[in-house]
Computed example of a mutant assay.
Amino acid sequence: MTDLFIIGAGTAGLSAAIYAVRAGKSVIVAESGTYGGQIINTPDIENYPGIAHISGYEFATNLYSQATDLGVKVIFAKVEEITGDGPFTIKAGKDTYEAKTIIIATGAKNRHLGLKNEERLIGKGISYCATCDGMFFKGKDVAVNGGGNTALSDALYLAGIANHVTLIHRRDSFRGDKADLDKLNTCDNVTFLLNSNVTGLSGKDHLESIAVTNVKTRETTNVPVSALFVAIGQEPDNQIFANLVDLDEKGYIKAGADCETSHPGIYAAGDCRTTSLRQLTTAAADGAIAATAACTYIDRN
């Protein structure tokens, strides 16, 4: 029987683990992929308070080492089933665990375009991580689809690698940080296509071009590119928890600033929960709040 079972070894999950183990609780963290979450692929973090510059890999590795050095047990397995009302029984991989409380910190996954040929061309020109795959297209023409911080960051990163970057956004203005947008405006190898959507993907063995349709004129343009980096947002992967906690219409776990879900003893932290802002700082804060609430719940029960 462990005190806390945390699902997800991203910023929220590992922050929760650190707070819980420092409070004297036993902690197991389950991760189905790589520790660190999506931030591990970010080349340069500039907006985390107190740290002017740090790579996502270094940040995630420091966080992981801090947690494990404190005694947090991390298992690399996918949680497949949770039963019980508390204590809970968790099936992860081939093993089964029992826990007094659960913190769900599964983050969110990249949203796909849903276009024909998209799945076939993943890894052959279609990518959802510029920092992971950008170097494969050094000196070539590429495109980025999106208008938020990730899209702007991706375009800026690729501008230093690719021959030319076409940044496509469905609205007439970007939602991302003005600082990154200002930097992009100084790049002579970046072109903006606003009020536009990617509507087609062409290529036999690899991506060769994309169809871009203007949402106002309905005119479609063929843009030759070797790669398209999709950065149109994220979506949660919470369906496995639907029988335990309430989800909103988009599939996010209903939990407020206190990180409490509809089920006593289960908490949600980070990008997987309903929130107006999904950032590194909010993930870390959620982890601390969820762990503290879980510890209080254990002490009272």
Rank of each mutant, 00 (worst) to 15 (best):
I7T: 06
G10N: 08
A12Y: 15
L14C: 03
S15P: 02
A20R: 07
R22C: 08
A23T: 01
A23M: 13
G24F: 12
Y35A: 13
Y35V: 13
N41Q: 13
I45P: 08
N47K: 11
F59P: 01
T68I: 09
D69A: 08
L70M: 15
E81D: 05
I82P: 06
P87N: 00
P87A: 00
I90F: 05
I90V: 14
K94M: 03
A108M: 14
A108K: 15
K109P: 02
L113G: 11
A130V: 03
C132W: 09
F136G: 02
N149F: 01
G160E: 03
H164K: 15
V165S: 06
V165Q: 12
R171C: 00
G176Q: 07
T186E: 15
T186V: 13
D188P: 01
D188T: 08
D188Q: 13
F192P: 04
L193N: 10
G200Q: 06
K204I: 13
I210V: 14
T213I: 13
R218T: 15
T221D: 04
N222P: 00
P224Q: 07
L228W: 12
F229E: 04
A231N: 12
I232F: 02
Q234E: 09
A242H: 06
D246I: 01
G256S: 09
A257D: 06
G265K: 10
G270T: 08
R273Y: 06
T281M: 07
D286W: 14
D286C: 11
A288H: 09
I289V: 15
I289N: 10
A290N: 14
D299L: 10
